[in-house]
């Protein structure tokens, strides 16, 4: 059940957008497709939604072969980055559009639309036009519109990409709670790793048309399979020939086993965190500390300290080959 995309291949002219991609999305989960722009994640989503045809490969939605089925008959909810609001229709009529197409009774439509508008907190705006709503409200309307037809899966293409940071954060929390209420299989595309880590049950990292890694957010953060995934999911620095997260480096005032001597080159305080840029001979790592830690160590520019990866740190030896060479391509999403 859920979604299965098998051996998807898609090119635009000479550009290979998707190169033999296999993806399984488990029913009822909230899955994020994460990657840099141009990596193929939106194309994959559009192929699942039937808005784009793959050159080869198949899509199975809820156990039913969907390859070649046009979008209008896939029963898939799609939410676009720029809302795709029907500008000449009221919020109510936007949401009821799919139900009217399905020729539901007036009473049924009214109940369903009001129920959905309540769910997205827009009930009092039912008679407004989309142009009279804020960006966040428009996107919630678009979400209600997509949910109205009770889709088998909900697909969101950079749904918060056009919103400002504060609204984006609010909507992100809200989407998570909404999903916990509605439980529809959901796939959303994002290039924001924080968004993906915070919201999703499982995460699919896509780059250069290939899936780099699939797993739970923690799995991917703690055990990235390659430099690309490690670098894309969070900050990375190099210590003693290893890649390590800057908050996973222990700063010691004495030389202990496995530590490397380093000299503080620069200290930057950003709110609650202190960033120390150091010079460790053959590498120039930076370390992320809390203010308390920095104070306890009496760090200042020029101090000599010893560095080593903390015990549970995830480290990676940088690969010589092209990024993504070790990509796992056939993986099931989820733990």
């Amino acid at each position: 059940m859920g979604i299965a995309a098998q051996h998807i291949y898609k090119r635009f002219g000479d550009f290979v957008a998707l190169d033999d991609v296999n993806l399984d999305v488990r029913s009822g989960e909230l899955t994020a497709l994460l990657g840099p722009s141009g990596g193929g994640k939106s194309t994959l989503l559009r192929i699942i939604g039937g808005l784009e045809d793959a050159d080869s490969g198949s899509v199975i939605i809820d156990g039913v072969e969907a390859t070649g089925v046009p979008a209008q008959r896939r029963n898939v909810g799609f939410v676009f980055q720029h809302y795709a609001a029907f500008k000449h229709l009221s919020v109510y009529r936007n949401v009821s559009f799919g139900l009217e197409i399905r020729k539901r009774s007036k009473a049924e439509i009214r109940n369903r639309v009001h129920e959905l508008l309540e769910l997205v907190h827009l009930d009092q705006f039912a008679d407004r036009l989309p142009s009279q709503l804020s960006g966040g409200q428009r996107q919630r309307m678009a979400l209600a519109r997509a949910l109205a037809v009770e889709p088998k899966v909900l697909l969101l293409d950079e749904p918060f990409g056009a919103l400002d940071a504060k609204v984006r954060k609010e909507l992100r929390d809200w989407l998570r709670r909404l999903h916990d209420e509605v439980h529809v299989t959901t796939v959303f595309v994002t290039h924001d790793q924080e968004e993906a880590l915070e919201v999703s049950d499982s995460l699919v990292v896509i780059n250069h048309g290939r899936i780099e890694q699939v797993g739970s957010p923690n799995e991917l953060y703690d055990h990235p399979v390659n430099d690309f995934v490690m670098g894309f999911l969070g900050p990375v620095t190099e210590l003693n020939g290893q890649l390590v997260r800057p908050h996973d480096i222990e700063v010691l005032s004495t030389d202990l086993t496995g530590s490397v001597q380093a000299k503080v080159h620069r200290l930057v305080r950003i709110g609650f965190e202190v960033r120390a840029e150091l010079d460790a001979g053959d590498s120039q790592p930076w370390v992320q500390l809390t203010r308390g830690q920095a104070d306890a160590l009496e760090l200042e520019t020029g101090s000599v300290v010893w560095l080593r990866p903390s015990r549970d740190a995830s480290t990676l030896v940088p690969q010589a080959g092209p990024p993504g060479a070790a990509a796992v391509n056939r993986t099931t999403v989820g733990p």
Binding site: G49, G50, L51, P70, A71, Q72, R73, R74, N75, V76, G77, F78, F80, H82, A84, A85, F86, K87, F97, G98, I101, R102, A142, R145, A146, A148, V149
Partner: peptide, 18 residues
């Protein structure tokens, strides 16, 4: 006209004529 509006209509079940 943004084509995503037409794509939205299609994903909601509307045929090309509708």
């Amino acid at each position: 006209l943004e084509t995503d509006v037409e794509e939205a209509a299609a994903s909601l079940g509307a045929g090309p004529f509708t």
